[in-house]
Design a protein around this nucleic acid. Structure first.
Lengths: 239, 239
DNA sequence: TCGATGCAAGAGATCATACCACTAGGAATG
DNA sequence: CATTCCTAGTGGTATGATCTCTTGCATCGA
C-alpha cells in the first residue's frame, strides 16, 4: 500500500514543501488511527520508504507533529501516537506570559470567564454517561491518597463539565489551563483540603443533574471565586 | 558572541535532545528580538556555526518554531521573526474539528461565552490608547472599500477589546477564533452590510468609554446574537 | 533614461551516507 | 528465578552534495 505525496507544484503559487505535505498527510492519518486504537506510527526509515522521501523530510515532519501534540518521539522506541491537541496552547501561553505569577492570575481569570458558562451548558446538555463519569471522579477525589491524586480528580471533574458542555474548543482551552494550573491547584488544596473542593463539586453536579443552567452557573462561579480567594490567601501567607 | 547549548546530560533522567535545547533557546531569543524590532534570525548555516551543531539540528528546530508561530521560513530568503502565538491553536482546532460547519458553530458559541466578558473587562480597564485605537478601527470599518478590509477592521475591533481587557490568554484565543472565522464574517457582512456592524461596534464602544461594564457586556452579547442570527440566515438562504 | 532580461550569489530544501546513543527483549549466568 | 549482558532496531546527529528559489545587479535594447 503505497501513498504518494503531492510533489510540490511548479509554478508561481507559493510552493508547498515535502515537509508540509507529509505533515498534513500524517496528521490526518494519526487522527484516524487514534480513533481505531492504534498506538504507533511506522519507523522513520519505514515512512521514508513509504512516502519516497528522505529521512530528513520525515524527521522534520515528526518534529512538527510532536509540537502539535499528535506524536511522542522516543529515542530507541519509535513514534507513539498521542491525543494532546491542547499541548500547543500550553507552549504558546508559556511563551506569551513567561512570568508565572502573571500567567497564573490571567489563567484564573480566564477560568472565571469560561467555566460558569460551561457549567450552564453542561446543565443543558449533559448525557447520562457524563453524569456517571462526574460521579466517579467525585469518588476518586474523595478517596485520593495524596495531593497529586486529588489534583488529577479535580482537573478531570472540570474537564468533564467542559465535555458535557459539548464545545470542543472550550474543552481544549480548559485542558490547557488545567495543565498549566496544576501548581496553583496544589496550593489551593493545601489551604482548604480536598474536602471543600469535593463539596463545591457536589453542589455544581447537583445543579447539572437537576438541569438548572443558572444554578450550575452560580455554583461554579462561587467555587471559582472561593478558589481564587484561597489562592490569594496562600500567596499572602508566603510573603 | 558564542552561545553554547547545554549538551544533553548523560544519565538516567530523560535526555534532552539538541533540537529541544535549540528550540527553547531560539524561542526566547525570538521573543526578545521581536521586542527590539529585529525581523530576521541568522541563516541556518550561521546558526549551525554559532551553536556548534549540524544544520540538521537547526532545520528540525526551525520547523518546530515555525509551527509555534515564532518564525516564517521562506525558501531563498531566510528566517523571518513573526508574532503569531495564536497560530498553534488555529492548527489544533482545525484538527480537532475538521468539519467546517461544526467548527463554525462551536467557534460562534465560544465567542458568545468569551466576548461579552471581555467587553465588561474592557469597560473597567481600557486605557486612552485602547480607546483611540478602537475609534481608528471604526473609521477603517466605515471607509472599507471591500469586504476583506471590512473583515480586517471587524476582527481588529474585537481584538482591541480583548487587548483592553488585559487578559493575554483570552486575547490569544480570540485572535485564533478571529482568523478561523474569517469566512463566517464574510457571510455575515454579506447579509447585513458593514454599516450595521459599525453601529453595533459604536454601541459597544460607547459603553466602554462610559466605563459601564454591564452595559458593555450587554451590547456585545446583543451584537454577537445578531451576528449569529445573520449567519444562520445566510446558511438557510444557501439551502 | 527606463524597462526588460539574464546571471550569479546566497538562501532554504532535499538527498544520501555514516556513525552515535538509547531501548527493549532475549539469552546466559549465578 | 532473578540479574546481567548483548544485540538488533530505534531515534539523534553530523557531513557533504546537489537542487530549487529569491533577489539584486549588470547589461542590453527601445
Amino acid at each position: 500500500m503505497r501513498i504518494t505525496l503531492k510533489r510540490p507544484a511548479l509554478g508561481k503559487s507559493a510552493p508547498r514543501s515535502l515537509v508540509d505535505e507529509l505533515c498534513e498527510t500524517l496528521a490526518k492519518r494519526i487522527r484516524r488511527d487514534l480513533g481505531k486504537g492504534r498506538s504507533q506510527l511506522p519507523t522513520e526509515r519505514e515512512l521514508a520508504v513509504e512516502f519516497e522521501v528522505s529521512r530528513t523530510v520525515v524527521r522534520e515532519a515528526t518534529k512538527r507533529l510532536e509540537l502539535q501534540g499528535l506524536l511522542e518521539v522516543r529515542h530507541g522506541i519509535g513514534l507513539r501516537l498521542v491525543d494532546k491537541l491542547h499541548a500547543p496552547l500550553n507552549g504558546a501561553l508559556e511563551l506569551l506570559l513567561p512570568d508565572a505569577g502573571q500567567r497564573l492570575r490571567q489563567l484564573t481569570e480566564t477560568r472565571r470567564v469560561i467555566e460558569p458558562e460551561l457549567a450552564r451548558l453542561a446543565a443543558e446538555r449533559a448525557k447520562p454517561e457524563h453524569l456517571r463519569a462526574m460521579r466517579r471522579t467525585q469518588q476518586q477525589l474523595e478517596k485520593a491518597v495524596d495531593t497529586a491524586e486529588a489534583i488529577d480528580a479535580d482537573v478531570e471533574f472540570h474537564r468533564l463539565i467542559a465535555a458535557a458542555a459539548g464545545n470542543g474548543i472550550l474543552e481544549l482551552v480548559l485542558k490547557s489551563l488545567g495543565e498549566l494550573g496544576r501548581e496553583s491547584r496544589r496550593a489551593t488544596i493545601a489551604v482548604t483540603g480536598s474536602k471543600l473542593v469535593h463539596e463545591h463539586h457536589a453542589a455544581i453536579l447537583k445543579q447539572i443533574e437537576q438541569r438548572k443552567p443558572q444554578g450550575a452557573f452560580d455554583a461554579m462561579a462561587r467555587h471559582l471565586a472561593a478558589a481564587d480567594r484561597d489562592l490569594n490567601d496562600h500567596f499572602v501567607k508566603q510573603k
